[in-house]
């Protein structure tokens, strides 16, 4: 592996932005997931509270986590900046 085009070469501003964005979204989702897991483990009865449309917290939060993963993934995809790839011998095409 050539060090020049590896992760460890000085990152372009676009890549730094993308990495930061990824970490922020990761932290946000982790908190959301942690909340779900902690409620399940420590306040299990809370999961039975009806939240919306007759659905309990377990269903709303559980499906919400799956939906949130999708929404955050889309947001990340849209917000990420395109990197200006430095010319490298491995980039055929």
């Amino acid at each position: 592996m050539n060090m020049e085009d590896s992760q460890f070469s000085p990152a372009s501003p676009q890549r730094r932005f993308n990495t930061r964005l990824g970490l922020i979204l990761f932290a946000f989702y982790s908190l959301l997931y942690l909340g779900f897991v902690l409620i399940s483990a420590l306040a299990t009865d809370m999961m039975e509270i009806t939240v919306v449309a007759g659905l309990n917290l377990a269903i709303v939060y559980g499906f919400g986590l799956i939906f949130a993963a999708f929404v955050l993934a889309m947001a990340y995809g849209l917000l990420c900046k395109t990197e200006t790839t430095p010319p490298s011998q491995e980039d055929v095409q």
Binding site: Q7, R15, Y29, G62, A73
Partner: peptide, 23 residues
């Protein structure tokens, strides 16, 4: 289902791009 899917968030936000670049 929830846990298996949440794992993909780690893959997307932390691992995906560096993995491609490094290996």
């Amino acid at each position: 289902s929830i846990g298996y899917l949440a794992g993909w968030i780690v893959a997307l936000f932390v691992i995906a791009e560096p993995m491609k670049r490094l290996g």
